[in-house]
């Protein structure tokens, strides 16, 4: 099997000594308690977990904004926790693992959309003609070309978030981490951003790590990771993960409504599958089930 893009071994982290960050609740010093996981290149992984479960911390560890207390992180096979890492190596990691945050307003730097998209490549010292090409390409990839000369404050939340994504794409990353990037958007903006994320994953082969509270978004992933109390509690396809309705409940997460309905029906003794994800699928299954029952009666 090919080498995983991201490989994490026994990762622990505590904010002791570090500045305490927002979103981390309680006094528990260890935010992450021995997490191990691999992320394959080109996959679309969703990370679920309630507030303070350590999922954002995990993301910040992966692109070296934070330094782990113990454990190893390998990015493209390279040990980034190695003390011999130079500053240039660190910037190479940050280039290849891009990150899009929650608040679209707080991650745009420049006063013009295309200048903002150029910010990353400019920092990397890319030659001007090449930056121009990358900026145009990145804006086209998120469908924001016509807004290139706009000012960020003229855009909607979803549009701003797409500009932020373009700013990351322009650095030609291998992986993009979305740290609750849809949480502050309205349904329209959320759809825009999710469509963009899916397109990037499918068409450009960019590995996606999507941190979210939204279960419906998680059903779009290839793989779902559930983190609770700094530990990895569930790992599997959306079907596998969501069929463990009770387990999800105990870690403070909801499941998609259809999945919940089917699990309730199963508990009542109906012979139905417990891993239904979409409403269409559920409706089909129910109507088929009802027809079969009519015949057998």
């Amino acid at each position: 099997m090919a080498q995983p893009l991201i490989s994490v071994r026994d990762l622990t982290f505590s904010y002791a000594g570090e500045d305490r960050q927002e979103g981390v609740e309680g006094d528990a010093p260890a935010v992450l308690k021995g997490i191990s996981l691999d992320v394959e290149k080109g996959s679309f992984v969703c990370i679920l977990g309630r507030n303070g479960s350590g999922k954002s911390t995990l993301a910040k560890l992966l692109n070296m904004i934070l330094t782990p207390t113990s454990g190893k992180i390998f990015i493209k096979g390279k040990d980034v926790t190695d003390p011999a890492m130079t500053e240039d190596d660190m910037f190479e990691v940050r280039r290849s693992i891009g990150m899009v945050f929650q608040n679209p307003d707080n991650q745009l730097v420049a006063t013009i959309v295309e200048e903002d998209v150029a910010f990353g490549p400019e920092n990397l010292g890319v030659p001007p003609e090449e930056i121009r090409k990358r900026v145009d390409g990145a804006l086209a990839a998120v469908g924001m070309t016509e807004y290139a000369r706009h000012s960020p404050h003229q855009l909607s939340g979803g549009q701003k978030q797409r500009v932020a994504i373009a700013g990351i794409i322009a650095m030609l990353p291998d992986c993009i981490i979305f740290d609750e990037s849809t949480a502050m958007l309205d349904p329209q903006g959320r759809r825009e951003v999710m469509n963009t994320i899916q397109a990037l994953n499918r068409e450009k082969g960019i590995t996606v790590l999507h941190i979210t509270h939204n279960m419906d978004e998680a059903t779009l992933a290839d793989r779902v990771l559930v983190i609770d109390g700094g530990e990895l509690v569930l790992d599997g396809t959306p079907r596998q993960v969501f069929s463990s309705v009770r387990r999800l409940r105990t870690v403070g997460l909801d499941v998609p409504q259809v999945t919940e309905l089917f699990s309730l029906l199963r508990e009542e003794g109906f012979d139905l599958p417990g891993d239904v994800l979409s409403e269409e699928e559920g409706a089909d299954l129910l109507s088929r089930y009802l027809k079969e029952n009519e015949k057998s009666q």
């Binding site: 904004i65 990150m99 400019e122 920092n123 121009r132 700013g167 990351i168 650095m171």
Partner: peptide, 13 residues
Amino acid sequence: CRCYRGGNGRTRM
């Protein structure tokens, strides 16, 4: 995260 490290080695579009 976007590799900002001050003005050194920075280019402009």
